[in-house]
C-alpha cells in the first residue's frame, strides 16, 4: 500500500458516499445513469468473487464488501425507492456493446480460468462503465453540482491509480499491463469532464457543457 493507492481508494469510497448523499438529500436520482450504476455492480460482483478464495487483508475484504453492497443498494434506490425520478429516455446508451466487447477481450487475452476471465472482464468493463453516465450528461448538457463532485471523485480515483502503478513499478517491479491499459483508457474518458469541472465548478459556476 502506498499513499497514492490509499487516497485513490478513499476517493472511490467518497464518490459512493457523495452519490448516496445526492440521492438522499435531493430525494431524487435524476441526472444519474442507472445503466452506469448497473455496470458498476456487475464490475464489483465479477471482480470480487475472490472474496471466497483469497484473503489479502481486512482492509481489502471490507472495501470489497462495501463496494458490492453499496452498488446494489444504489440500484435498489434507483429502481424502487426513487424510481419516479429516473428518466429512462435520457439513459439510452447501448450497454450491450460494452458488455459484449469486455467479455470478448477477456476471452481472447486470459488463460481460460473462469475467475481470471471474470477478473479481466471486470477490468475492461470498469474502464468504460462511466460512458452511459457521460452520454447522459452530454444529452442534458448540465449537471447538479453534487453530481459533478461524485464524477470528479470517481474519475480521480483511477487517475491516482495510474500514479500508484508507476510507483509500484519503480519500487516493487510490479507489472500489470491489463490494469494499466484499462486504467489509462478509463482516466482518458474523464478528460473533457475534468476540464469543465476545473474551469466551471471549481470557480463556483454551474456545470454546463459549452
Amino acid at each position: 500500500m502506498n499513499i497514492f493507492r490509499l487516497v485513490a481508494d478513499l476517493m472511490h469510497l467518497a464518490s459512493i458516499f457523495i452519490l448516496l448523499l445526492k440521492i438522499q438529500k435531493t430525494r431524487s436520482c435524476s441526472g444519474i445513469s442507472f445503466k452506469s450504476q448497473l455496470l458498476y455492480s456487475i464490475v464489483f460482483v465479477t471482480r470480487y468473487l475472490d472474496l471466497f478464495t483469497a484473503f489479502i487483508s481486512l482492509y481489502n475484504t471490507s472495501m470489497k464488501i462495501f463496494f458490492i453492497a453499496t452498488s446494489i443498494y444504489i440500484l435498489y434506490l434507483m429502481k424502487f425507492k426513487f424510481r419516479a425520478t429516473y428518466d429512462p429516455n435520457l439513459d439510452t446508451f447501448r450497454v450491450e456493446f460494452l458488455l459484449g466487447g469486455s467479455l470478448l477481450l477477456a476471452l481472447i487475452f486470459s488463460d481460460f480460468v473462469l475467475m481470471e476471465i471474470l477478473w479481466q472482464f471486470s477490468i475492461y468493463l470498469e474502464s468504460v462503465a462511466i460512458l452511459p453516465q457521460l452520454f447522459m450528461l452530454s444529452r442534458t448538457g448540465e449537471a447538479e453540482t453534487i453530481t459533478t463532485h461524485y464524477l470528479f471523485a470517481l474519475g480521480g480515483y483511477r487517475a491516482l491509480y495510474l500514479i500508484n502503478w508507476l510507483w509500484r513499478f519503480v519500487t516493487e517491479s510490479h507489472v500489470d499491463k491489463i490494469s494499466w491499459i484499462a486504467g489509462a483508457v478509463q482516466t482518458a474518458l474523464y478528460s473533457d469532464f475534468f476540464y469543465i469541472y476545473y474551469t466551471k465548478v471549481l470557480h463556483g459556476k454551474k456545470f454546463e457543457l459549452p
Binding site: 481508494d9 472511490h12 475472490d50 483469497a54 489479502i56 470489497k64 475467475m115 500489470d176
Partner: peptide, 10 residues
Amino acid sequence: TSAKEKHDEL
C-alpha cells in the same frame, strides 16, 4: 503466481 499475488488491488 497465485490469485493473491496477482490481484491485490481493489
